[in-house]
Write a protein that binds this DNA or RNA. Structure first.
Length: 329
DNA sequence: TTCTTAATAT
DNA sequence: AATATTAAGA
């Protein structure tokens, strides 16, 4: 089983007091073939969670009675569901607060369908694993999902199942032992992981974002090493460089085309997915020298970052979005 | 030491 | 194609 075309439809609970918005988001989710269950208030939502077998929660932040964060707290208390917040509060401080509370993703409103395309990964992440240490072979996690839908382009017959490759070339033998086959799997920068990376950078501030710091803030030592982050950061910077070189932001004219391209890239995707305005990124880039007015940032104090825990293996989890690498153009 | 970059390897 | 690793200078 677990063939491919899955069948696994993720059940997503949407919560928003604004009925219009609720419907809108619902339809966006359905577009990606998610099973949608909606609630107009946290209280109803909590009741629903008990009845249905929800995989992921998407909630508005600003709501009467109980706001999104309080709601998330409740969810986290009894169930361990990943919660995504949608908010029109684009303040950095709010973003940080939400993340610190354990929200897995913070989406800025207005949202667009694409924003939801890959959110199933958060659901997978929280289920798929949690086995604290022992990064042994996460390779087998296997994502049997595959975001169904495939409403559009999405051809992946990728069946790259390489097995092992006994590789020994270590002259030393500081360890040598390997019963569980401590093969070091390559890190797969899934959207979720990349998002974490981006959010860490946003939190730290681009100017101060160095491998070590990012590594610490991301707080997923089971999945990454500082070197992984350094490597990713290097690539990310190259991407930013290219993008800023193009200076397409300035052009208000036919920017739509250019921007469209940017959107396709992985890095951009992660960034823009949450903040649809491409300007955000550049604003940050441009004023990096002055802004720095970073609010108080001390220790992220990541409460529960299990959100990304298991993500890592599986090859095409993300491939769906990434067929365009960072090298746009 | 860590950071950054470039080059090279897997 | 995406990541990792290594080397060298700051």
């Amino acid at each position: 089983m677990a063939g491919q075309i899955s069948t696994v439809r993720f059940k997503i609970l949407v919560v928003d007091d604004d009925s219009t918005c609720l419907k809108l988001v619902s339809s966006m989710l359905k577009k990606w073939n998610y099973e949608v269950i909606s609630a107009s208030c946290p209280v109803d939502a909590l009741a629903t969670v008990q009845l249905r077998d929800i995989d992921l929660v998407v909630t508005d932040l600003h709501m009467p009675k109980m706001n999104g964060l309080e709601f998330q707290k409740e969810i986290d208390k009894e169930y361990k569901l990943p919660v995504i917040i949608m908010s029109s509060n684009h303040k950095e401080a709010m973003l940080m607060k939400a993340l610190a509370c354990g929200v897995v993703f913070y989406m800025k409103k207005p949202v667009i369908p694409e924003d939801f395309k890959n959110i199933w990964q958060y659901a997978v992440a929280s289920k798929t694993a949690k086995p604290s240490r022992n990064i042994g072979r996460i390779e087998s996690i296997q994502v049997e999902n595959n975001s169904g839908s495939s409403v559009n382009k999405g051809k992946h017959g990728n069946k790259k199942d390489c097995k092992r490759k006994a590789h020994e070339k270590k002259k030393d033998d500081t360890e040598g032992e390997n019963s569980t086959a401590p093969k070091k799997p390559k890190v797969v920068w899934t959207d979720a992981l990349h998002n974490r990376f981006l959010q860490a950078i946003r939190y730290i501030t681009l100017e101060k974002a160095v491998p070590k710091k990012i590594y610490e803030v991301m707080n997923v030592p089971e999945l990454l090493t500082r070197d992984n982050v350094a490597s990713h950061l290097q690539k990310y910077r190259i991407f930013l460089e290219r993008v800023s070189e193009k200076g397409f932001v300035a052009t208000t004219n036919k920017n739509s085309i250019t921007i469209g391209r940017i959107f396709r890239s992985n890095f951009a995707a992660g960034l823009f997915k949450t903040s649809q305005d491409p300007y955000t990124l550049f604003k940050g880039l441009e004023k990096q020298t002055s802004a720095t007015a970073t609010p108080s940032f001390q220790s992220f104090n990541p409460t529960n970052f299990r959100s990304i825990d298991g993500l890592s293996s599986n090859n095409f989890a993300l491939s769906s979005t990434s067929r365009f690498g960072f090298g746009l153009m």
